[in-house]
Each structure stands twice: as C-alpha cells, then as structure tokens.
Amino acid sequence: MPPENKSTLGRRLLFLLPVAAFVALAVTFALGLGHDPTMLKSAMIDKPAPAFALEPVMADKPGLARADLGGKPMLVNFFASWCAPCRVEHATLNGIAASGIPLVGIAYKDKLENAQRFLGDLGDPYQKIGLDLDGRTAIDFGVYGVPETYILDREGRIRFRYAGSLSDEVLKTEILPRLAALERP
C-alpha cells in the first residue's frame, strides 16, 4: 500500500472529494425541501381521466378501466402495500367505504400477492381495484407518489387531487365539500 506521505496537489484534491459529494447531496436535499408536492397544482385538473384498463387485484372483484369512471362523482385512490402512509390513511378509506361514497383503488407498482395481503389485513374499502404494475396509469394521472386521491366528476373529469395521507380531518375539509358540490345538479 502507498504510504500517506506525499502532499501533492492531487492528494489535496482527493481529500476535497467528500466535500464535493456532500455539496451535491445537500443541494438535492434543499431542492427536495422546496418541493412541496401538496402545493403542486396537477396539470390534469379539469381534464378527463386518461384511458386505461387494469387487471383485478382481488379474486372476487373486477379490475378497473376508464369506462368504470364517471356516471357519478367518485374518488380514485392510488395506494401501495409498501407505502407506510397508505397504511395510515386506510382507516379513513374504510370509513369512506362505510359511508357509501363511491371509491375505487389503483394499486401502484405493487406485487399482486402483497396488495392482496395488504387489503386482507386492513380491509378492502374499494368497489373496484386495478393493478398498475408498471405505474403507467399513475403517470397518466399525474401521480407524484402514493398515496394520492383524486375526485372525479360525473363526466369522468379529474376535479381535485389530494397528495398525501387522507385523514378524517382532510376528508371533512378537503374532500367531502368538493364531492357535495359535484353532487349538486
């Protein structure tokens, strides 16, 4: 091994390498910090939901396709079994299902058996569930990261996007008033 006894310029630069790497990291964090996904207005707002047709997740429930959306205002929820905040919001979703609000789910980049297990453990609040294995449909919807919930009107247009974990509070202040407004003829 070379002894550490040469104090050349190259050697000094070598010791600067960690600093450079850290600066890059810090810049990334700073950008990540200024990046508030809940503030981003989705480019898809007021546009019709994209076309898709997804395989079913649960054996006893149909898959989900573009044709299933519309007719009445409804919620589309993107979730994944590997996503901890999805676990957190699940109680709220179960509550939504119990109150009779139409809710469909899309499992984002999830393994079939994991998604089944997730819903088996926590309960299945969805009327229909599609498996978005490659995340294509999520990209078309403009999903930033799971969980996200979209409000669609009766024409199947995206009217509102909520990024992040739903809670009863969010449901009361953000979701229910908008749904009620869409329900009105």
Binding site: V19, F29, L33, D36, T38, C83
Partner: peptide, 27 residues
C-alpha cells in the same frame, strides 16, 4: 422524506433547520 415524498414538506421550518444542521455538521 424517505418513506413518503409527502411528509418532508409538512413542516418546512423543521426541514430547513435539519438541512442547516446537516450542512454545518457534515459539511
């Protein structure tokens, strides 16, 4: 920030403080 992209921005003051702390200590 890692478990969900949504959580970091929940409290921007906290996030900024963390970043300054990291920069001072590590940098």
């Amino acid at each position: 920030v890692l478990s969900s992209v949504h959580a970091f921005a929940v409290d921007p003051a906290r996030g900024a403080f963390i970043l300054v702390l990291l920069v001072v200590a590590i940098g």
